[in-house]
């Protein structure tokens, strides 16, 4: 066990956990931030996507000991009531079916637009192909990203 001071959504939080604990489980089990989802545990589905210094990463494969002073943003850190432009676009296109993968999809989309404000269709596809949606809402995800890019 070791103590870590983590900057999450602008707030510093302390945890005392095994250094190898993936940040996914630190968020979910220790900090009560349940928006980041467990889907596969091997960085194949993207449900656990968070931002590390603004970059989209798979939290299921990221040990807490590797975070250091880097800033973590989770879905809860985008906005309280869904007012982030990407969240608004998601609502406008009524993207979700079951909704389980969507926080990971949104976090991937937010990071994409931050680095590439006017992505081409190919850019969008290449980026979000790492995130599985079992309900098959991919067409709406792409449309929502395009809408958000215009905002």
């Amino acid at each position: 066990m070791a103590k870590y001071s983590l900057k999450i959504n602008g707030k510093t939080q302390q945890v005392d956990v095994d250094p190898l604990t993936p940040i996914l489980w630190v968020l979910r089990d220790h900090l009560n931030l349940q928006g980041t989802k467990y889907g596969c545990g091997i960085a194949q589905c993207g449900a656990c996507t968070i931002h590390l210094n603004g970059m989209a990463v798979r939290s299921c494969q990221l040990p807490v000991s590797s975070i250091g002073r880097q800033e973590i943003t989770t879905i809860e850190g985008l906005s309280e009531n869904g007012t982030h432009p990407v969240q608004e676009a998601w609502l406008e296109h009524d993207v979700a079916q079951c909704g389980y993968c969507q926080s990971g999809q949104i976090m991937t989309a937010v990071a994409l637009l931050k680095n590439n404000p006017n992505p081409s269709d190919e850019d969008i596809e290449a980026t979000i192909s790492g995130n599985i949606c079992r309900c098959g809402t991919y067409l709406r995800i792409k449309e929502a990203i395009k809408t958000a890019a215009k905002k």
């Binding site: 349940q34 928006g35 809860e76 979700a96």
Partner: peptide, 13 residues
Amino acid sequence: KNIEGVKIVTGKP
């Protein structure tokens, strides 16, 4: 619109 849309996009439990 989906009645739970906002909860979904904000990652509510």
